[in-house]
Write a protein that binds this DNA or RNA. Structure first.
Lengths: 193, 193
DNA sequence: GTCTATATTTTGATAGAC
DNA sequence: GTCTATCAAAATATAGAC
């Protein structure tokens, strides 16, 4: 139940570092964020931080994994997803602009082929689209959604809308209502003959 | 008709620099792209480049303006836009992954409040949503689209979908058909009772 | 585990010759 | 208009003491 004595301190510090890193990466993006600054905010030196995470990239990837875990199972991040979960996540995101910024910045940077996060996002989108497609197919069998719609198209569209709304919302929070507009899309999908 | 003699060379070099800069900013993002590299690819020294564009930011903003001009009027970029234009632009983007990457990277970086491009993208989204909303309203009066839909919501959704699809397409070109999926959304909007 | 000190690299920008 | 040379300021990462 309790962590073994000698490691308790190290684990706590790790968490402190990750919290500071999340905030910094979210606010500045990967490049502009500096390990020094993160260390300072976590209350230790740069070298001290690099004892826990030996490179900036390693730290960054750990932060990314944590962000993902927020929405679900911390173990495998393979919990069942659905449109309801997506909408719920977007509603939750309104209260976490830092996380949204992290996600938007990092997904954009991942399009570079040499990006350390490219494969992370590729598999994330595979997983997300797959889960949504399964949910759509389920609802098509139940008669909630027209069988004329391609489940893959719908899944991509839902993910795209969520992503795109995040971007507009970050730039102009007053002009975009993310959850509401995603629901408008969802209504269009369900009401379609 | 022809440029004045003494300036012809300078203008040509400027274009060469801008072309190299576009590619670099698109591939690496603003931070990772270095003026040195861009200069080298344009066939001159860093100092030589900075004679034409005295700061990195100035160079960058000029590249951004050019990208925008591709889709329309090079003068004011205030040509009338519409859903048809949006779909057409997306179809065109399939052949220009470099431009798409530039746009995705830069719009994401612009969410940082200190970003030199923040205001650029804010006004760009204002303009784009405004044009689309006007188009939607026009079509609602013509009976093509249900009057029950909020034109602002629809405009935001269309822009969001286009942006989000770009991201997925850059990561996995084989798994996403941008123009087709945008048309699916457009059909949903029009067919909705 | 954490520190100080430092090596190394890279960056944006400037000065001044040609 | 373009160059070489250089500055000053970051950054990541490492070495070694404690």
């Amino acid at each position: 139940m309790t962590e073994r004595g000698p490691y308790a301190k190290g684990v706590a510090k790790r968490e402190e570092i990750l919290a500071a890193a999340l905030e910094h990466f979210a606010r500045k993006g990967y490049d502009r964020a500096s390990v020094r600054e993160i260390a300072r905010e976590a209350g230790l030196s740069q070298a001290g931080l690099l004892h826990h995470f030996s490179t900036k990239e390693e730290l960054f990837l750990e932060v990314l994994r944590r962000r993902d875990d927020r929405d679900g199972d911390p173990e495998q991040h393979r919990h069942v997803h659905s449109v309801d979960h997506l909408i719920h996540a977007v509603e939750h995101n309104v209260d976490e602009p830092g996380l949204v910024r992290l996600f938007v910045s990092m997904s954009a940077e991942s399009v570079d082929e040499s990006s350390p996060t490219r494969s992370f996002f590729e598999s994330r989108y595979d997983w997300l689209r797959g889960e949504l497609r399964a949910d759509i197919e389920r609802r098509q069998k139940g008669g909630e959604i027209s069988p004329d719609l391609d489940p893959d198209d719908v899944a991509s569209l839902l993910v795209a809308a969520a992503d795109g709304l995040q971007l507009q919302w970050l730039l102009q929070p007053d002009k975009v209502d993310m959850p509401n507009q995603l629901k408008v899309l969802w209504d269009l999908i369900r009401k379609n003959a």
